[in-house]
Amino acid sequence: MKLGVQLGYWGAQPPHGTAELVAAAESAGFDSLFTAEAWGSDAYTPLAWWGASTTTMRLGTSVLQMSARTPTACAMAALTLDHLSGGRHMVGLGVSGPQVVEGWYGQPFAKPLARTREYIDIMRQVWAREAPVTNSGEHYPLPLDGERATGLGKPLKPITHPLRRDIPILLGAEGPKNVALAAEIADGWLPLFFTPRMADTYHSWLDEGFARPGARRSRADFEICATARIVITDDRPAALAALKPNIALYMGGMGSEDTNFHAEVYRRMGYSDLVDEVTALFRSGRKDEAALVIPDDVVDDGAIVGNVDHVREQIALWEKAGVTTMLVSPGSPEEVRQLAALVE
């Protein structure tokens, strides 16, 4: 199993010490570097900035929000970074949720699975550069037609010849239908809240996609790059408590009260009653209480917290569950080196 460093997205201010983390990760043999976006910092700018100091790590997005860019704009950015990095780019995509898609980007959220199919097909047309790019689907028609169009649109091929005609695409997917779609049309899956306990369930979703006609991959060559919250510590209670506010945010505060895809992940993990309680507390402004009601076992289910021996044992379980890359967020170069030593 490989390690990737997940820089994530920025909070109120850019993080400090990123250059040192990236340098340590490359020196320690990390496989990849990932960035993310929400509704603040974008993913591509930091990835290009910090990626420019690397020579071996693959450069991925986890994830680009599809509604932030048209498929051709995303394909252009990807082929550009792929050239600049010497063929080290991976495109991680996600549909986000209606609150962000319609509230921040001003785009329709409907039919996310169909939109994903069209989006990826268009990107691959751009990179293949076999013919002018066209799409007859309802979500991203190319050329644009109908009342909004002048009728002057022309199918085009990219001016720049892509370095690779098949840049890897990974999907950030949480629900069973979306995970199956990733197995069918993508090169990998980017789970955000992964637990080895549900490995059989995940693989049943993936196997549904692998079995579909025309599936690109099989389990043998499909990547699972899972975000992993790892804390090496002898003070487990304090570390577990420190993770709970973030879990409360995703469980109870993301999306809308009745449409929170992250909360649905926890429901599928068996925590429906807890999700209801955390959501009620969080959305009534009682965020501290929302974090406090989360049991340690729930944190343990999706995080690895403990001493070196415990962490090493849990990493082995994640690998056995099918994870090919663990995306970790170390806080210092020393933590980078500690983690690298655990997966040698």
Rank of each mutant, 00 (worst) to 15 (best):
A242Y: 14
G188Y: 03
M76I: 04
W189K: 03
G255S: 06
D309Q: 15
L171F: 10
H83T: 00
R117D: 08
I167A: 09
L144P: 05
P295H: 14
L33F: 06
V22A: 09
M76L: 14
A316V: 14
E223I: 02
G60W: 06
P295A: 06
L181R: 14
S85I: 13
V293R: 04
T233Y: 09
S85F: 13
A226E: 01
G209P: 08
E335D: 14
P71S: 00
R148S: 05
P108I: 02
D166A: 13
S272H: 13
R197E: 03
G51F: 01
A43N: 08
E264H: 13
A75T: 11
R268E: 10
N307G: 12
F222W: 10
R268I: 03
Q99V: 11
E184V: 00
A183G: 15
S218D: 10
T54D: 11
P237R: 01
I185D: 02
G270L: 03
S85N: 09
S41L: 01
Q13C: 00
S136E: 15
A186D: 08
C74L: 03
P191H: 13
T56A: 15
A75M: 08
M57F: 07
E289D: 14
T233V: 11
L7N: 02
L171A: 07
A131I: 07
D31E: 02
A239S: 13
L84R: 08
R217D: 06
F210C: 06
T45D: 04
R219N: 13
V133Y: 03
G285E: 11
Y44H: 12
S96T: 15
S136F: 09
G146R: 10
D273L: 04
L144E: 12
R148T: 06
A241P: 09
V265M: 04
D145Y: 04
W49E: 09
A290Y: 12
G11C: 03
E208P: 08
G146E: 05
E334I: 07
G255R: 03
F222D: 13
M66K: 07
